[in-house]
């Protein structure tokens, strides 16, 4: 039985596509690591799922019986090639509420599209406004005139997780430091230090069954100052994120709506539950948000972003 299931998974993973979301901070190392990690997790979860499916669905078991001999043989012969399609954003255009183009960001990558090298912000007349250059362990912000504005030194661990970000101005004066800790590849702690390296804030991330369920924001003395509770539906989709103050009173909240498991609407609500604003997502067939519409509570469009993607294929092998 195990061999049958394994063979089915192997066949299916050949056709697996992974979609990639826009990230505010792009770290290619993390991207690669996360893809690997997610694929491993995926296969693990899938194996478990199919086992459950087999146990409760006699029809499926019957079907698989017919195909045992041919597939088992194939598995034994060679490791399975996994082709993963990774979508990465190359251009983000911002439009005013009336549809007039405002500014746009062009993202440049290395030849195979795996490493982000530069983000350039242009105004509607194609005049550069600023650029962000990514080098190994360094992210630098330049003005329209090409002068250095600030930079970050970024250290990562062997798995590509960002451990530390030190932000400096153009005169090499330290502005702030962020430090991160991880467990099983999941971020558990974020600390912020000031220019004197004194601790300003600690944020703790708490997980339940691999889902982030609570975020505690602590003072330098360790007292809770505010916290967030994240709720999921039965499919494991995040449905709300409620922000509380130290006394446990709701400050604001977010709720998330999905269609075909793709995020399509985000509502930002006041403490009394009334809608403050909305974010609508239009996704392509792979679930990449190609249009993001920011609206107020009355559905007046404040801003519209469109995102163009390119894709690359990543090949890996699984035994």
């Amino acid at each position: 039985m195990q061999l049958i299931l394994k063979s089915i998974i192997i066949h299916i993973t050949k056709f697996t596509h992974i979609k990639w979301e826009t990230r505010s901070v792009w770290n290619p190392l993390i991207v690669i690591k996360e893809i690997k990690m997610k694929l491993s997790s995926l296969i693990f979860v899938l194996v478990a799922l199919v086992f459950i499916g087999c146990a409760s669905s006699p029809n499926v078991s019957e079907s698989t019986t017919d195909i045992v001999p041919a597939v088992v043989e194939e598995v034994k012969k060679e490791p399975v090639k996994i082709v993963t399609t990774v979508y990465y954003p190359v251009k983000v255009v911002s439009y005013f509420g009336d549809g007039v183009k405002d500014e746009y960001t062009v993202k440049s990558y290395n030849e195979d599209g795996s490493v982000l090298l530069k983000e350039e912000l242009f105004n509607s007349e194609d005049v550069i406004q600023q650029s962000v250059v990514y080098e190994s362990g360094k992210k630098s912000l330049y003005s329209a005139a090409g002068a250095l504005v600030s930079y970050e030194l970024i250290s990562v661990d062997a798995d590509g997780n960002v451990l530390k970000k030190e932000k400096y101005d153009n005169k090499d004066v330290l502005l702030s430091i962020s430090e991160y800790q991880y467990e099983n590849g999941m971020k558990t702690v974020w600390k912020v230090f000031n220019e004197s390296k004194s601790l300003l804030s600690t944020t703790k991330y708490i997980y339940t069954d691999n889902n982030l369920t609570r975020i505690d924001s602590l003072s330098p003395g360790g007292e809770i100052e505010e916290y967030f509770e994240l709720g999921y539906d039965s499919n494991g989709l995040l449905v709300d994120n409620i922000h509380y103050n130290a006394e446990g009173k709701v400050q604001d909240s977010r709720s998330f709506e999905y269609k075909d498991s793709f995020l399509v609407m985000e509502l930002i609500k006041r403490k009394n539950g009334s809608v403050l604003r909305k974010i609508m997502y239009l996704n392509d067939q792979f679930g990449n948000p190609i249009e993001t519409v920011f609206m107020d509570a009355g559905d007046n469009v404040q801003e519209r972003l469109t995102t163009d993607y390119e894709s690359r294929e990543e090949i890996s092998y699984e035994e």
Binding site: W20, G236, F262, L263
Partner: peptide, 23 residues
């Protein structure tokens, strides 16, 4: 099934955590 699982993974990863703004 596999598609749904991929979506779950990525939606969870893409949701903006507003604790950053709060901090």
């Amino acid at each position: 099934i596999i598609t749904i699982f991929l979506v779950l993974l990525f939606v969870a990863a893409s949701v903006p955590a507003n604790e950053v703004s709060a901090v």
